[in-house]
Amino acid sequence: MSREDVLVTAEWAENNLETPGVVFVEVDEDTSAYDGGHIPGAVKIDWKTELQDAVRRDFVDREGFEKLLSAKGIGNEDRVVLYGGNNNWFAAYAYWYFKLYGHQNVQLLDGGRKKWELDGRPLSSDAVSRAETEYKAQEQDPAIRAFRDEVVAAINAKNLVDVRSPDEFSGKLLAPAHLPQEQAQRGGHIPSAINVPWSKAANEDGTFRSDDELRELYSDAGIDEGKATIAYCRIGERSSHTWFALHELLGYSDVKNYDGSWTEYGSLVGVPVEVGPGTH
């Protein structure tokens, strides 16, 4: 797998807005940006209301994913290009989620909405409708999703990459600095985790850093390429961004995203928590 297989440039995207079989999808937690103007022809997926189960803290099930993609007009053969705000956090999450349910022909728009806007490329507020499909999903691929027991077992055994900001890692903050800090769970990180903030994998314009820069970033931080890796953040979207960098761009073979992340781990009873800057 190479960078060209998993990422498209804004220029490529603009040249392929009407290419049959290519579906652009904007994914965000807050879809008001889409409503105000989106890449022409793109459909939207709401991370919260469409990808998360309405009752349990989990994903929509396989049948729910089939129903969602069918309604969006996405077919099994379509090449899906995902993009969004927040430096593609939720788009990267959706990428991982599409892979989880077996959709292999999926790519990220490098730089997401930010790069598109900074380039001054066209946005449209026209309603988009695509003909309904009969999408068929696979069972979830357990090779890329980590659950809490596996994470506890990985302490001092696998690479644990905490991709939150240093202040969240140390326990000073419970959420990113642009969000209210009212969460109730404990602050800190999983013992033995290495802090490599997701943002170090991105350039200022939201595009991913080069493969050489990424390789140096993670090896300098002490991540052993020969070991299995689990990435986590607060709710699993920033760690999807790092999962993408490690697994899709650098080709590390065994990388999982722990989507329960700190909102789950930091509320568990009976697990070890480390505070401060860490020992790595």
């Binding site: 937690e29 807050d30 927040n86 209210p180 909102t263």
Partner: peptide
């Protein structure tokens, strides 16, 4: 205020309630 995700809340000069 309810905001359990990482999406940027609406930016306003007036602070939201509860801050």
């Amino acid at each position: 205020m309810a905001n359990d995700g990482c999406g940027a809340p609406e930016q306003t000069a007036v602070l939201p309630a509860g801050i």
